[in-house]
Every structure is written in structure tokens, then in C-alpha cells.
């Protein structure tokens, strides 16, 4: 695997010309490593001329940026009102029970990470979820779990 630090430097340098490069850089680093490795932060901060504190503040402000890798499957379940109106809360409950995790946690075998999301824009086919970004409408716990087992 690529050493994250020099690669993060490359990514930061490639985006440095942008107005407001921080989020594009963090997205690119996460796309490559699945999370933002802690050791890359001083390097990114240096290239973008930020203090480490400023960059830490940005990384921790946004829910998307993870400081540890997710499981092989990232299961995101909508908690918005439209999904609640169609049993979304019960769906979330059933998945947490079946996977023995709470929100934001990864199963003991490291396979599935369960995350809440506040709206996927699928409010007319609620409840909604995504598995590694693939959208599922009128989602049921059984069907989602079956997909994870494949």
C-alpha cells in the first residue's frame, strides 16, 4: 500500500491552486485511503499553509471525514422524517440489533459499518438506505442484511 504521507502531500500540492482547497483535498485523501490517516494531517496542513489546529477543526467538523477506516460495507440508513413516516426508526432499530452495533460503529468482524444519514433525497420511496453508495428504496432490514451477506 502507498505510504499515506507522501501521497497526501502530492494530493495537497495538486489542489493547492484552488480557492478553498481544503475540502477537495480531504475528500481526495479519503477516497484513496478510506479515511484520513492521522499522520497525513501535519503534511496537508503544511502544504496548504494552515495550522494543524485549523485543519483538525475542519476534519472533525464534517461527519463525512473518518479518522479510522470503515468496514467493507458502509451501510447508511436515513433517519429523516419522511423515512420515519414509513418505519425508518424501526428499520434502524432492527439493523442495530441484527448487527449488534450502534450508530457509527463497525461490526466485531470488521465487515459492516452502520451510519445514520439525514436524508438521501429518496423521500417518496422511503425508508431509504445505501450500501457502499448504492441506493435502496422501500428498504427492509431483511433485504439489506441479505445483500450484506452475499
Amino acid at each position: 500500500m502507498t505510504d499515506p504521507v507522501p501521497r497526501a502531500r502530492q494530493i495537497a500540492e495538486a489542489h493547492r491552486h484552488l480557492d478553498g482547497p481544503v475540502l477537495p483535498v480531504l475528500h481526495a485523501v479519503q477516497a484513496e485511503f478510506g479515511h484520513i490517516p492521522a499522520e497525513t494531517l501535519p503534511e496537508i496542513a503544511h502544504v496548504l499553509d494552515l495550522s494543524r489546529a485549523e485543519l483538525h477543526g475542519v476534519v472533525t467538523f464534517y461527519p463525512d471525514f473518518r479518522t479510522a477506516p470503515a468496514g467493507r460495507y458502509l451501510l447508511r440508513v436515513c433517519r429523516g422524517e419522511a423515512c420515519q413516516a414509513m418505519g425508518g426508526a424501526e428499520l434502524g432499530e432492527a439493523l442495530r440489533r441484527a448487527l449488534s452495533v450502534d450508530w457509527h460503529e463497525t461490526t466485531a468482524d470488521g465487515v459492516v459499518t452502520l451510519e445514520p444519514v439525514y436524508c438521501l433525497g429518496l423521500c417518496s420511496c422511503a425508508p431509504a438506505a445505501t450500501i457502499n453508495g448504492v441506493p435502496r428504496g422501500r428498504a427492509g432490514a431483511e433485504a439489506l442484511l441479505a445483500e450484506l451477506e452475499k
Binding site: 475540502l23 475528500h27 467538523f61
Partner: peptide
């Protein structure tokens, strides 16, 4: 440009901060 999961960035001034690379 992509946001990063913060609802409040739909508010225009938080959006501008985010676009500039700051906390939203």
C-alpha cells in the same frame, strides 16, 4: 465542490465558509 455531510452548510454563510475550506 462537494460538501461533507454537514446539514448547516445549506445556510448560505456556512456554505461560504465551507467552500473556503473552513468549518461550516
Amino acid at each position: 465542490r462537494l460538501g461533507a455531510g454537514a446539514y448547516v452548510c445549506g445556510e448560505e454563510t456556512a456554505l461560504l465558509n465551507s467552500l473556503e475550506g473552513k468549518r461550516g
